[in-house]
């Protein structure tokens, strides 16, 4: 899979067909699967552009960074961007702006994280064209002492018709943590379909009982549930599968 590495806040030069870079701008002009990894980064500002009629799968990975992210994604007419993203950082402070600029532009945003830290996520999606679609699925495992805030805002411009806004966020808490989910959908048009769910809660006692009644210890049951929630939400490239499993194994239990 084509990989773009950002090390110490700088895009490492690469030669990938269908991707061009100009300063902090990254343009995807060919269909394909790509990886974006942040290594030793603390301040990221990217402008990502998906050309008309293109379909891009982007896997984003950030581990052990104390990071501020301010990324913009511009998705043209009839283009689709699928983001699968895994974070396990020291701290994350992220502002994401997604612009669905043309008719039938779509975003599918699958984000999983496991955290012991303070994470702030603001995801703004601007439906600027008719028949635009946004699906946001966030799943976070909040370990003891962590703090996780999600603000997810869907905006539909006046006069934009037949849009679809779908937002689901789930935070599983392990121990004491401070968590908030604010889902907002701003639309005045009856043709908008808007769906959302927000869940914050502990691992279910009934789920634990079921797993333990099959001989699985308490700690391993927690890990199984944590791993299941984190991994099932994102498509992970082969080369990151073991890495993410190891991260969860090391952090997964209470």
């Amino acid at each position: 899979m084509n990989k773009i590495s950002i090390v110490k806040n700088n895009i490492i030069p690469f030669d990938i067909e269908g991707v061009s870079v100009n300063g902090n701008d990254i343009s995807f002009t060919e269909n394909g699967n790509y990886i974006l990894e942040y290594i030793e980064c603390n301040n990221i500002e990217l402008n990502i552009k998906i050309d008309m009629n293109k379909c891009i799968n982007l896997f984003e990975f950030s581990y052990d960074n104390d990071i501020n992210v301010d990324n913009k994604y511009n998705i043209d007419k009839n283009a689709s961007l699928i983001i699968n993203k895994f974070y396990c950082n020291k701290d994350s402070n992220e502002n994401i702006d997604i612009y669905l600029n043309g008719e039938k532009a779509s975003i599918k945003y699958n984000f999983s994280s496991i955290t012991s830290a303070k994470d702030r996520y603001k995801i703004n999606i601007y439906h600027n064209g008719n028949n635009t679609t946004s699906d946001v699925f966030n799943k976070t495992v909040a370990k003891d002492g962590s703090s996780n805030y999600f603000d997810i805002n869907g905006y539909v411009e006046n006069g934009v018709l037949d849009t679809y806004i779908n937002q689901h966020t789930k935070i599983i808490t392990l121990g004491e943590s401070d968590n908030r989910i604010n889902p907002n959908m701003y639309t005045h048009d009856n043709s908008t379909t808007a769906i959302h769910s927000s869940v914050i809660g502990n691992v279910s006692e009934d789920e634990l009982f079921y797993l333990m009644s099959r001989g699985i210890s308490y700690d391993d049951s927690i890990k199984l549930i944590v791993k299941g929630n984190v991994l099932s939400n994102i498509n992970i490239p082969n080369e990151y599968w073991q890495k993410i499993n190891d991260i969860i194994d090391n952090l997964g239990g209470e």
């Binding site: 797993l211 009644s213 049951s221 549930i225 099932s232």
Partner: peptide, 30 residues
């Protein structure tokens, strides 16, 4: 879990649905 390891098995009236945990991972872990 210690009771299960002794060889006791409870086939439940309403087996739990656990979204995200793959049946395969669960069975192999058990």
């Amino acid at each position: 879990d210690e009771r299960a390891k002794k060889g006791i098995f409870l086939a439940m009236q309403n087996p739990m649905e656990i979204d995200g945990v793959s049946n395969q991972d669960f069975l192999r872990s058990a």
